[in-house]
């Protein structure tokens, strides 16, 4: 992959809240078929950096490029349309709608049918079938008609992943996808992520604290600390590096696992 053009790139990406530099001068490139984990202690700027990528926040400086195209000034919806897909850390769904409807909305967005006002939504078999298939993928089919507000936390996390899969993005961004899940649910999600990686044509970005997960899945680890990129490389090498040991693992070993 060495000289292939990167799919996603950030150049000197920074955001400042007043004097606080939440993300400072982060430059990274991500290539097709790779899975990169972003680690760092709480408050290191991982989620903020994700927000800058997917457009929930606008950068103070620097650029976000997708296939060389500058996305920096685009809205979140336009970036999603371009292929930057995002699953959120805090469950962030449509609570008053059914699980199936949640996924159907994501599928409909991908099919660009949101403007169709003359058809009954439930009759769009193509969209409903795809949505149901995705619910099966995350083993939530039995919950299809439940309101999301009534789903247990773990199921909401799975639904979050189903929504991301529905968008069929080029860049998958998972923000702690397994946080708050019970032990037997975690493998379902990890397997899905491993499958996306195995397809070799997507970019996967993962924010994750569980070091065993990080070690087994990642091709590469990026370490953020106080908003700055402090290490970037092969998992074994990054985990072993003294700067990481000190900044992250040493300090927060207890929380990390």
């Amino acid at each position: 992959m060495a000289y292939e053009q990167p799919v996603l790139e950030t150049r000197n990406l920074s955001i400042h809240f007043g004097g606080h530099k939440a993300v400072n001068d982060v430059s990274c490139q991500f290539h097709r078929g790779t899975l990169t984990t972003i680690v760092g202690p709480n408050g290191a700027g991982k989620t903020t950096w994700f927000n800058l990528l997917s457009g929930q926040l606008r950068a103070s400086h620097g650029k976000v490029l997708l296939h060389g195209e500058d996305l920096t000034s685009m809205s979140a919806s336009a970036r999603a349309d371009k292929g930057l897909g995002r699953a959120f850390q805090l469950t962030n769904l449509f609570p008053g709608l059914s699980a199936l409807e949640n996924v159907r909305l994501a599928v409909a967005s991908q099919h660009h049918t949101g403007h169709v006002f003359w058809q009954v939504s439930a009759r769009r078999r193509d969209i409903a079938d795809r949505a149901y298939e995705l619910l099966q993928t995350v083993s939530l089919a039995h919950r299809a008609d439940n309101l999301v507000a009534n789903l247990p936390h773990g199921d909401q996390r799975k639904l979050e992943v189903a929504l991301l899969l529905a968008l069929e993005p080029e860049v998958f961004m998972f923000d702690e996808p397994t946080a708050g899940m019970s032990v037997d649910e975690v493998p379902v999600i990890l397997e899905l992520i491993a499958e996306i990686k195995a397809r070799k044509d997507k970019v996967v970005l993962l924010v994750e604290h569980k070091m065993d997960v990080v070690r087994s899945l990642s091709d590469r680890i990026v370490v953020l600390h106080n908003g700055e990129l402090v290490a970037d490389g092969e998992p074994a090498e990054v985990i072993a590096s003294p700067v990481v040991q000190e900044a992250y693992l040493g300090a927060t070993q207890g929380e990390a696992s």
Binding site: Q56, A76, S77, A80, N92, A108, T113, F117, V120, L163
Partner: peptide, 24 residues
Amino acid sequence: NSPFGKVLQAIRENEFRAQALGYN
């Protein structure tokens, strides 16, 4: 009850997320 109407309800429920799904 159309796809359009469902997007409206999505905006009602969580506009931020509707944007993240790619809806303007």
